[in-house]
């Protein structure tokens, strides 16, 4: 949002984005000394690209809800629920011998995931907006419900062994560039367009900055809340497809660390936990930054749990940065 940028008279570049770029440079420089050969290789770049889109897209969903003044803790639940549905469709409808039915079944699976994600999100939004229950509680409840649905449908064990065409969505590439990169870029452009160039996007920002003033300006707050969460749900559905295809498995407990991770991405990317502020670009950059860090950890043979630990610390640091920036802005006024 360019109007954010000009919040101060001197048109300073956004502090959050500068911080993220600085941190990226720091990680790259560190790796230049520690693991130059492995880190700066095409193979490594590709392996990174295969990983981040699924939670990057999830983070966009979290971002949209948080800008609207809420939060979406149910995203991982939506992701797994839609993943299970898609996996079931693919397992049962793709004929063993292949053929045109394969494509049709996969398209159906993708469409089902997106529609169900949208419905789950809309349900969250309706409960939040109609009953005036805090988004935190409703989506926590949604997490339980959608995870529970996924668990109930599968009965526990994962659904494995999808057809090759479906696996290719997250694992295939064209001219060395993974498909998922295109998907991520497409989603990025879509979210940017929605947030910046549509009435809906502006209404999300309005709702997050002042829900009452939104109502007094003629914005239908219930409708916008439902649409916001439905949008987030759609993004959750897309992630569901990606993770199911990526892991070749769908179950209720995939990606359990993603809630924390997406929160971290979003806060680090400059979205204010109270709503109303945040940029798509900041969130995208912070997704990439975290992938760079995660990958560096992997190459240095550090434990996965070290990553959790560091992510927790970074989340606190990002929040503290917010507090500091708020204070400084307040002083300037």
């Amino acid at each position: 949002m360019n109007n954010q940028k000009a919040g101060t008279a001197r048109r300073l570049p956004d502090t959050h984005i500068l911080t993220i770029i600085g941190l990226m440079a720091l990680v790259l420089i560190m790796m230049l000394f520690l693991q130059p050969g492995n880190y700066f290789s095409l193979k490594n770049a590709r392996s990174m690209i295969y990983q981040f889109p699924e939670y990057g897209i999830l983070a966009f969903g979290m971002m949209v809800c948080m800008i609207a003044g809420g939060i979406d803790l149910s995203l991982v639940g939506i992701m797994n629920f839609t993943g299970v549905i898609a996996a079931l469709i693919v397992k049962h409808m793709v004929p063993a011998e292949g053929g045109p039915m394969t494509a049709a079944a996969i398209i159906l699976a993708v469409a089902a995931a997106i529609v169900i994600g949208c419905a789950c999100g809309a349900f969250n939004g309706f409960i939040i907006g109609y009953f005036h229950i805090p988004a935190m509680l409703v989506t926590l409840c949604g997490l339980q419900l959608y995870t529970g649905l996924a668990y109930g449908i599968t009965g526990g064990p994962a659904i494995n062994g999808m057809c090759d065409a479906f696996k290719a969505i997250s694992n295939g590439s064209i001219a060395g560039i993974p498909y998922v990169l295109f998907i991520f870029i497409a989603v990025f452009l879509l979210v940017t367009f929605v947030m910046k160039s549509t009435v809906f996007g502006h209404e999300i920002y309005f709702l997050g900055s002042n829900a009452r003033a939104s109502r007094y300006s003629g914005i239908n707050t219930l409708k916008v809340t439902i649409m916001t969460h439905a949008f987030s749900g759609i993004l959750g559905g897309i992630s569901g497809i990606l993770i199911t295809s990526h892991l070749n498995s769908a179950k209720s407990s995939n990606g359990s660390t993603y809630t924390l991770l997406t929160l971290l991405i979003v806060v680090l990317g400059g979205v204010h936990p109270d709503g109303g502020k945040g940029k798509v670009l900041g969130v995208t950059l912070s997704t990439i930054l975290l992938q760079l860090i995660a990958n560096a950890f992997g190459l240095l043979h550090m434990d996965d749990n070290a990553k959790t630990f560091v992510n927790g610390c970074m989340l606190v640091a990002a929040l503290l940065l917010d507090v500091y920036l708020d204070k400084r802005a307040a002083k300037r006024n």
Partner: peptide
């Protein structure tokens, strides 16, 4: 009730008339 304090003057000015600026699917 009246203002979005943290939004710009422009955002506040067009808050109630934003639909008029949809041109060709874009604001």
């Amino acid at each position: 009730q009246g203002l979005f304090m943290d939004r710009s003057i422009q955002d506040n000015t067009i808050a109630a008339s934003i639909r008029a600026y949809m041109k060709g699917g874009k604001l």
